[in-house]
Design a protein around this nucleic acid. Sequence first.
RNA 1: GGCGCAUUCGUCUAGUGGCCCAGGACAUCGCCCUCUCAAGGCGAAGAUCGCGGGUUCGAAUCCCGCAUGCGCUACCA
Length: 486
Amino acid sequence: MAPSPTGSIHIGNARTALYNYLLARQCEGTFVLRIEDTSRERSTPEFEQAVLDGLGWLGMDWDEGPNAGGDYGPYRQSERLATHKEWLEKLTAAGHTYRCFCTREELAEDRKVAQKEDRAPKYSGKCRDLDANEVDARLEAGEEAALRFRVEPRAVTFDDLILGQLEEDAGLWGDFIVGRSDGTPVYNFAVVVDDHLMAITDVVRGGDHISNTFKQIVMYEALGLAPPRFGHMPLTLNAKRQKLSKRDDSVAVEEYREQGYLPAAVVNFIALLGWNPGDERELFTMDELIETFRIERVTKSNAIFDFDRLDWFNGTYIRQLEVAELARLAKPFIEAAGLTIPDEDYLERAVALEQERIKRLADFPEALRFFLVEEVTPDMKFLVKKNGTTEETAAALSTVFELVQDFGVDDMAAMEENLRAMAEALGWKAGELFMPIRVAITGSKASPPLFDTMRVLGRARVLSRLRDAMRMLAKDAQDAAYGQSN
RNA sequence: GGCGCAUUCGUCUAGUGGCCCAGGACAUCGCCCUCUCAAGGCGAAGAUCGCGGGUUCGAAUCCCGCAUGCGCUACCA
């Protein structure tokens, strides 16, 4: 896996990383992490750390990498410059390169003309056959020159792990640059050198690299090296069917963590985005993925990222968690929202009631708010009994208040029995009585089951909220009376 | 423009010549359960398998053409 640290890890890269990881683990190979930071301006140590964190969070551990060591380091491309240059010289010694004095401006102009004339924008070959003496003289004179690879026209083919037999005509390329005029090698060459030196056997990367691969294969051959196996993954697209971009999509793995997605859910989801086991299973742990993943079963077509499906996976994983564990995970989200948690036990009991109602950990603050806050503000519209009056609702709540006062809140069966009896005596449906109580104590018309909620909230809090609600109703009745008399 | 890859329900996908007038999952809708919301159970709707030609007794599956989408086309990675 060779990510560029130009941002926190991208969900599309994460999927590529996952497939690499699964492949490496299932054949008991080595999962190598190499940081491709040759783009100095865009790469930062912070981003590199973010990439490492993201991978780690998802549960992918690498055997070799910047902070893991290994026999083939360094694992940061920027630290391998000397080696790359060495190999550039080997390539030159073998007669595969030549100096090109064309300026960027000239090249850009050629491209423009070519485009205008509907020709492929391929290098003219202007400097290909320059006289050796002339080259030396111009170099001597301080003229800048890039190093180009001599391309011999022919069909280049390879057997892709995912896509099958692939072929491209090298005659279409023109000689491409392998060394910049400042002497630094180009990414596509550095990759060849590194993959070889690091004894990489399988390269799985995004389909946007296919055209690079053809060129790499030619370079391997020029260096007398055997290329590794290549596999090109379909891309993940956004709802607009474009390659996911950092600009307009939620794409950083970091963001998923912040929104309260579980790593296991994210892994399960991205694993199934472009791969399936061939039967109808869809819930997989990492170990199960390692066992059942087959690269040949990776889909060839691009996939659109479906957030609803991710949510579903996340919900099912949340429901599978032990309550204590879920509470532990929820805690930082709740605290970040500025809510205070009285004690662990209380939190756990509240979390247990919301567990099957939540999709993301970030939903917890909102869902648990009424458990953690002193007062609640019921909406009058729902506090009053459906098709009923404020007076009769107030009267009913008052009776409930007494019941809670007398019997407490811990015996749910008794509470339910009492309230149902009360509803019947009133000639109300049970729900018609339960709803005002629910709204009074939770401030919302949607909540966990009423009696569980009351028990977790505790007698004192239930009583004070009932009292507040009764006051609200009384005030409302008063206002209405004034309104009538005026 | 050139080159490459792809094309099955809205989405992820199963499918490799007859088991497919196409199966599963998410989302949607309905019913059940039920004190609300969920969760769960059951069910419905949803794909003339991009289009057009072939090959074949028979094609989503094989062949050809076209269309569309995406990617690449840098002294970026």
